[in-house]
Design a protein around this nucleic acid. Structure first.
Lengths: 104, 104
DNA sequence: ACAACGAATAAGCGCATGCTTATTGATTCA
DNA sequence: TGAATCAATAAGCATGCGCTTATTCGTTGT
């Protein structure tokens, strides 16, 4: 599985990471994310599409507003990747991974 | 601190991640990494420079060979980032972070 | 000193990517 | 139906980035 490719690529961009971090503090509509005016609405939508394709966020439509939220499972491949390639951490990270199972 | 910027950027590239994963299995000289011929020596050196600037690998010179190895502390900012922006994980990840402290 | 080897740097090129403006699509309300 | 609002898509552009070849630097050995 190459899920981590899309995840790393998605989070490598500062604007995208900022959006993700914003969503981590709570659900928000595209309108809200655009409001700060730092970036155009299309740019925001494009970033959200990248985050969605990476499995990091999910969307929910309510009327004409589209709300985006962080998908808790989204970062799992990242944690798995770290655990897999850090052999000396694997044992201790096992607990964390089990924990993530619970959350799903 | 914007350490995670360089880390995400470094790991977003497949070739670079492949090199990192290779080094995670053990120290290797640039010569060894170039040997597979999939990529030129300058490209390898450039990737290694990016990984080094991100704090993910360290180098050691021995004669005319330069050996690279994974820096165990390198991925810490990544774990910290995950913990920080996943509010609902923070409590449970706290244990992991403490663990990372031990390893250093 | 000189040749050979390993690695880093320089310079240039092609392609990916993040932005913009313009447009289309979808939904609500008068 | 038509206007207004929110979001997604299209198209185009500029910059960044990863690769290459060529060169330079550092080290070893003859």
């Amino acid at each position: 599985m190459h899920a981590e490719q899309a995840i790393f690529a998605a989070l490598a961009d500062p604007s995208r990471r900022a959006i993700f971090e914003r969503l981590a503090r709570g659900e928000a509509a595209v309108k809200d994310l655009t409001a700060r005016g730092e970036i155009s609405q299309p740019a925001v939508s494009q970033h959200l599409a990248a985050l969605r394709d990476a499995g990091l966020v999910a969307q929910r439509r309510e009327g004409r507003l589209v709300y985006y939220r962080v998908d808790p499972k989204g970062l799992r491949p990242l944690v798995d990747w770290i655990a897999h390639y850090q052999a000396f951490w694997v044992d201790k990270l096992a607990g964390l991974r089990a924990l993530l199972e619970e959350l799903e």
